[in-house]
Design a protein around this nucleic acid. Structure first.
Lengths: 235, 235
DNA sequence: TATGTCCATTGATTTAAATCAAATTACACG
DNA sequence: CGTGTAATTTGATTTAAATCAATGGACATA
């Protein structure tokens, strides 16, 4: 657990003693694809850090439609809000998870950081508190961007932006002559993240392919014209 | 300025010495309706706290459509993200505002909290850092909720939810037999916040009126059936 | 190699909301 | 108190995307 904790940016660089202290009360949990990590409005236990695999944080509407708010990659944390919102409160009674989360890859490993134990540390450690601030700020920026996309751009632009972001976060030396990206999510999750229907996403990808900008082969997508794709995403 | 700073929750309850120290480098600025407080991608100076009046934080799309991300009421802060995202950085070069903001009432008073000066305090004060964490967490929850509304609910439900939230935040003792709420924003801003067009919002209000749930008179709206309105917002 | 299940694609149709256009109302200012 | 301008409402039409429906793989398992 010690080694795992040290790799999470929120905790990395802390002195050994503190890492040990935190490691003591954290718990490693392993989930398979489709397993629920927590339900919305379930009593709050603490926040999580993804160690390996992939997690989605999402909301379900009354009529069953799903929207994915975040896709959490390894070494990122999620579900800190209930912990931080009311640091003064003594107990966690009545705190609940504000969304659902689910593992979307097999053998997804996450660390549960229990709320009460961590709060005691946080309230006495400026260092950790500042790290959490940075983390939340990044999350906030991401959400702002997500809202901007959803409200000001159509499905084609959002799809292009999503592909470009995967493309740009993929370290590859052959980008100039195009390269293949490998989507970590299936169509259904991608659509739920982009705020559209599976069919619409499928059509959008087909259209981009017909225009010679990408080449789709299941979860592998060959970016033939990154420049044009970026142009679409920004238009 | 001292008295103003003390009323901002982020700073209230701090010891006098600290309040004085912060007051020294903050600057009071006054804007009229329609005045820009900052543009998107303008160099970052620091964050703001609204003292009186009303401020909107918004994004503009390429084709000129506007979406309001936040409406900031007195004693709340905004634009902290660039400051917090990179607390390590020594200078603020290359930090920019990620959205625009504008006063939407005359005589809107805001306090500018300059980034560099405040960062020095923040990095040495656990108390303030914890308060900022709570503030950001609340903001995060609000944004999550906003995304949920935008993606999982139609215009009628979003409108109902907006009216209900104004209604519930209005202290009134006559709620049982219905009461009048006074919208602080015009149709255009309300539409931009709800992620719809002015005409669609107007039609939606008309429909709710035709159904006997509300009674519209410009910015005054009489809530005839709060129960039904809430029911719509939750459906 | 067949078979069932899941997932993705394609086609047809519907629908909510945007856009375009006009009329009406509110409102600021001389 | 009119007059012009902006804000709002109402009407007609278009459009992007959702939904409904069917088909077409891919893949695992028997």
């Amino acid at each position: 657990m010690h080694e795992v904790i040290k790799r999470i940016p929120l905790f990395s660089g802390l002195e050994e003693g503190m890492v040990n202290k935190i490691s003591e009360f954290c718990r490693l949990r392993i989930f398979n694809k489709g397993d629920i990590i927590f339900f919305e409005s379930e009593p709050y236990r603490g926040f999580y850090a993804v160690v390996s695999g992939l997690v989605k944080v999402y909301k379900i509407s009354r009529d069953g439609r799903e929207h994915i708010i975040h896709i959490i990659a390894p070494f990122n944390t999620f579900a800190e809000v209930p912990l931080l919102e009311n640091l003064d409160k003594i107990t966690d009674d009545d705190f609940r998870y504000p969304a659902c989360s689910m593992a979307i890859e097999d053998n997804t490993k996450v660390v549960l950081v229990p709320a009460n134990e961590f709060r005691d540390i946080l309230k006495n450690d400026l260092n950790i508190s500042l790290r959490m601030l940075s983390g939340l700020a990044k999350r906030l920026r991401h959400l702002n961007h997500h809202i901007e996309e959803l409200t000001l751009k159509d499905v084609t632009k959002r799809t292009a932006a999503f592909l470009i972001s995967v493309y740009e976060n993929t370290s590859s030396n052959s980008k100039l002559k195009g390269s293949t990206i490998s989507l970590s999510v299936n169509r259904s999750d991608m659509a739920a993240y982009l705020g559209t229907a599976i069919e619409t996403l499928s059509r959008t990808l087909s259209r981009l392919q017909a225009e010679g900008i990408i080449e789709v082969t299941g979860k592998k997508i060959f970016i033939k014209n990154a420049y044009k794709l970026k142009e679409i995403s920004l238009s």
